[in-house]
């Protein structure tokens, strides 16, 4: 025992010294990567932990923080406006994601056809929607779907349809919000699918064709399985983005989320609680709820896509 300890104390410092000297030798490397970690500590990790602390305290931004335990989480679970915003967020996610990813896949397949002319121009014109600011998109869509004089209502009037109050109707306004998401992100997802399709080796298709597979079989047995990671990526990114939807409803409908709060999303709700109502503690509890929802829902989507 004593001997073992003795050898241990002999070995350990040497090992330690060599690790430290190894670290010291690479000090420049640590210095070069340090800015990220320093910034993450101050503007990432600390705020996340502080947010958790705040979620257990009642605080209006001024004066003392008051510890309230789980009260704010309990309140949140019974708050109708919170659940309303959860419902709205999921509704907009559902209306936008499926058509968007479907259109994106169709566009990607067409752009991947051999000998297609103008491929580069198509790519650029499909992608340009994604570099446009959401504020600008919301302003343009606001006029297109205007309750009275909007362009859509004008076209409907040509067929004798009375003006539709797109922005005041609690169902239609979700379609308007979803249409903005679809418009802005279909091209982006198409470009990603296209890159995924192009990364599938041509030899696989050739081999399958030699073995007598038809186009349908190669599509379901080569294209889809090999595209799965890319589809997974887009589904997860879309989920995370949709759950954080803020600018579209805020610019289109204002802080209130429109008539009856029909366009109130989770993020807009959190923003209101923090920066309009000054309920920083409660808003932090909301942000943790948002975090948990994003985590769980991403996981569900992941499992769902993997089953195919």
């Amino acid at each position: 025992m004593k001997e073992a300890l003795g050898t241990n104390t002999n070995v350990l410092p040497v090992k330690k010294r060599s690790l430290w000297s190894e670290i010291w030798k690479n000090r420049v490397s640590y210095l070069f990567i340090s800015p990220f970690y320093i910034l993450f500590l101050i503007f990432g990790l600390f705020p996340i932990l502080f947010s958790l602390y705040l979620a257990f305290h009642s605080w209006t931004g001024l004066g003392e923080m008051k510890f309230v335990g789980l009260a704010q989480f309990k309140y949140l679970l019974t708050e109708p406006d919170f659940w309303h915003s959860v419902g709205n967020t999921f509704a907009i996610w559902f209306i936008s994601t499926i058509p968007m990813l479907f259109f994106a896949l169709v566009i990607a397949f067409l752009l991947n056809l051999p000998l297609l002319k103008f491929r580069g121009i198509y790519r650029t014109l499909f992608f340009v929607t994604n570099v446009t600011s959401i504020v600008a998109v919301a302003i343009i869509f606001q006029s297109i779907f205007n309750n009275n004089y909007g362009l859509v209502n004008y076209f409907l009037s040509l067929f004798g349809v009375d003006p539709v109050k797109w922005l005041d109707n609690s169902v239609l306004v979700k379609f308007v919000l979803a249409s903005m998401v679809v418009w802005r992100f279909t091209g982006y997802n198409a470009i990603i699918y296209l890159a995924g399709l192009q990364s599938i080796p041509q030899t696989l298709y050739e081999a399958a064709t030699i073995d007598g597979a038809n186009r349908r079989q190669t599509f379901f047995h080569i294209t889809i399985p090999l595209l799965r990671p890319v589809i997974l990526f887009t589904v997860i990114m879309t989920t995370i983005g949709s759950m954080q939807l803020f600018t579209e409803p805020q610019v289109l409908l204002g802080d209130s989320g429109g008539v009856g709060g029909a366009g109130m999303t989770l993020s807009l709700y959190m923003y209101n609680q923090a920066f309009i109502q000054s309920q920083f503690g409660y808003a932090s509890a909301v942000s943790w709820a948002l975090f948990i929802i994003i985590g769980l829902f991403s996981l569900i989507n992941w499992k769902f896509v993997q089953r195919f």
């Binding site: 503007f43 990432g44 600390f46 705020p47 996340i48 502080f50 947010s51 705040l54 931004g61 995370i240 759950m243 954080q244 993020s267 959190m270 923090a274 920066f275 920083f280 808003a283 932090s284 942000s287 943790w288 948002l290 975090f291 994003i294």
Partner: peptide, 11 residues
């Protein structure tokens, strides 16, 4: 998600 640290970042 960036919104988790949003409020405290402001603080």
């Amino acid at each position: 998600p960036s919104q988790i640290s949003f409020i405290p970042s402001f603080i």
